[in-house]
Amino acid sequence: MANVNLVKERYIWRLPVRIYHWINAILVSILFLTGLYFASPLFSAPQGGEATWYHGMAWLRYIHLSSAYLFFANFIFRMYWALFGGDKYARFGGFKPWKFKWWGKPFKEQMASYLFLTSKEPHYMGHNPVAAIMYFIFVLCGSIIMIITGFALYSENNPGGFLAVLFGWVIPLVGSSYNLHSIHHLTAWLFPVFFITHIYAVVRHDIVDRTSVTSSMITGYKVELEE
């Protein structure tokens, strides 16, 4: 693998994917940090003065909730692109983890490689199957859970309102408002866990495969190599 020649640059991540990716990365970070903070606020407002002068918590909630709407819109946008974009590297395509066949050779080979069971390093221009399943579990399912529980939490502010009609059923489903907070809070931790593995995997692939994958999410280009 050390002897490689650059064959050509290939355009993989089209603009919608890159835009989604970075907006999502920024918003997830904001959502996680603000959420964690107002769940257990570390600092108090300065002693002295009137409560009406300060809006620390209210602002954080405002930031969390406005980011949440953008996050939701961005998510819908990516789903649209996956379903109707006709983009070879961004659609769901053959991604069918509920089918036994999907977990076949490509997945096993990639997994074996990650577990050092083989010295082969499979190459993919798009997502490899292990990466795909990670995105599916952590980002797709994670986002859906955060969106549903998040809007249900938000609907509590205005009982009987629009959001409560749409998402109010979640509370009896999970048992109580307390459980709802717990689920939203617990699921939030999927994202830092994903973040660590994701960054590690990207950097590692760059070092091992040298396909310039790290910058590919900015430029859109990956290099194709030949041994």
């Binding site: 769940a39 307390y178 459980n179 717990s182 809070h185 617990l186 939030a188 866990v193 593995t197 590690y200």
Partner: peptide, 29 residues
């Protein structure tokens, strides 16, 4: 507040569970 995640285990703060998970992921990586 939210000291326990009732459906996980007693004495299981969401942040505690989360921090262990992040720690495990970091160690694994």
């Amino acid at each position: 507040r939210l000291a326990e995640v009732p459906f996980v285990a007693s004495d299981s703060g969401a942040d505690k569970v989360g921090m262990y998970a992040v720690g495990a992921a970091a160690a694994g990586m």
